[in-house]
């Protein structure tokens, strides 16, 4: 559905003497039809620049971009405007027209596409139902909550039956609960309409919850790419590890673990990670039945992703050296990931 090859974007700096900014460098990327594809990266990584090239709001300096069968970098004028009606976008700050009601905002792209008044009204009603805004049709954006505004944004983006939906930090201005409800809506739309979604974010939670595949961006490049579960299982780059830790190790985990380890004074703290079906194996039971070790569970967490669940478990293991190393050998053999955090 979307295919990028060797795409770069360089901004020439207007200040004399300063270096041009390489916002995006040599990106190759393919997004399949019906996929929810996530792009994660820190501020300034070039995510917005990349996504804005997908609908021609920015032109690439180099490379080619094809979206829904159109060569975006080559078309302009009316052909580009037509293409944009098939590639919708939602925004972090919603970007609704404050002078229009919910209904009129949603009708706007239909007006642009030249849809007749009667058909517009019908379509708007459908969309209002789809995004769950019944009863708020005649409200102005200033009378809506952030989550409701984004629902209007989504309805507006879906109005012309696009093939691709681009989301630029669509949930970054929302609280966690509202974020989840918007993500549920996006997933629902993806499943019901078979819409291809490209979504950028700096929150791993968003990737975990709805994306099928993820690309990690740093310094204008894609440094890691794969199925979400695989990236959780084997993050390669340090930046990816940090993103994965956003989910597997909430802030306070590190402190708690080292605090507990200090209190135990002996034994070792191990982080086990499970992915997919492994998560269902009774590893701990096996451990205490077959080896003469004591096992304390310190913390555990399961994070479901679109390709299966990913779980982490922090345990404290105590026993004599020979038993502990036999137990470790068993763990190493089973397909779960292990990492020794503290070894007293």
């Amino acid at each position: 559905m979307i295919s990028l090859s060797n795409v770069s974007k360089i901004y020439k700096s207007k200040l004399k003497g300063s270096q041009p900014v390489k916002a995006v460098q040599n990106i190759d990327l393919d997004v399949d039809k019906g996929e929810i594809f996530g792009i994660i990266g820190y501020s300034g990584a070039g995510k917005s620049t990349l996504i804005r090239m997908l609908n021609g709001l920015e032109a690439p300096t180099d490379g080619s971009i094809s979206v829904a069968g159109r060569e975006m970098s080559k078309i302009r004028g009316s052909e580009l405007r037509k293409a944009r009606q098939e590639i919708s976008m939602i925004f972090q700050h919603f970007n609704l027209l404050w002078s229009r009601t919910v209904r009129e905002n949603i009708a706007f792209p239909l007006e642009i596409a030249g849809v007749s008044r009667e058909q517009r009204l019908n379509r708007v009603d459908e969309l209002i139902k789809l995004v769950g805004l019944e009863g708020r049709e005649d409200a102005y954006p200033s009378q809506l909550s952030g989550g409701q505004k984004q629902r209007v944004g989504i309805a507006r983006a879906l109005a012309n039956n696009p093939k691709v939906l681009l989301c630029d930090e669509a949930t970054s201005a929302l609280d966690p609960q509202t974020t989840d409800s918007i993500l549920d809506l996006l997933q629902d739309i993806n499943e019901r309409l078979g819409l291809t979604i490209v979504l950028i974010t700096h929150e791993m939670h968003v990737i975990r919850k709805i994306c099928h595949r993820v690309a990690v961006m740093e310094g204008g490049q894609v440094v890691e790419l794969g199925k979400v579960l695989d990236v959780f299982k084997h993050p390669e780059k340090p930046i990816t590890k940090r993103f994965v830790q956003q989910i597997t190790e909430p802030e306070e985990t590190k402190d708690t673990i080292s605090h507990l380890a200090a209190e135990f004074g002996q034994g070792m703290v191990i982080q086990l990670s499970f992915a997919g079906d492994d998560a269902e194996k009774p590893v701990i039971t096996h451990l205490i039945r077959h080896f003469d070790v004591e096992v304390n569970i310190l913390q555990g967490k399961i994070s479901p992703t679109q390709n299966g669940s990913y779980g982490t478990l922090f345990i404290h293991m105590l026993g004599d050296e020979a038993e502990v190393s036999r137990a470790m050998a068993y763990l190493n053999e089973s397909k779960i990931g292990i990492e020794v955090i503290e070894n007293a």
């Binding site: 405007r81 944009r84 009606q85 925004f91 700050h93 792209p109 007006e111």
Partner: peptide
């Protein structure tokens, strides 16, 4: 808000539409 103009552009609006409707 620049974002609103950008949203209109992303919907495929022509300049005259942006002037009159945004």
């Amino acid at each position: 808000d620049k974002g609103v103009i950008e949203a209109a552009r992303s919907m495929g609006a022509r300049v005259t539409t942006i002037i009159w409707k945004v």
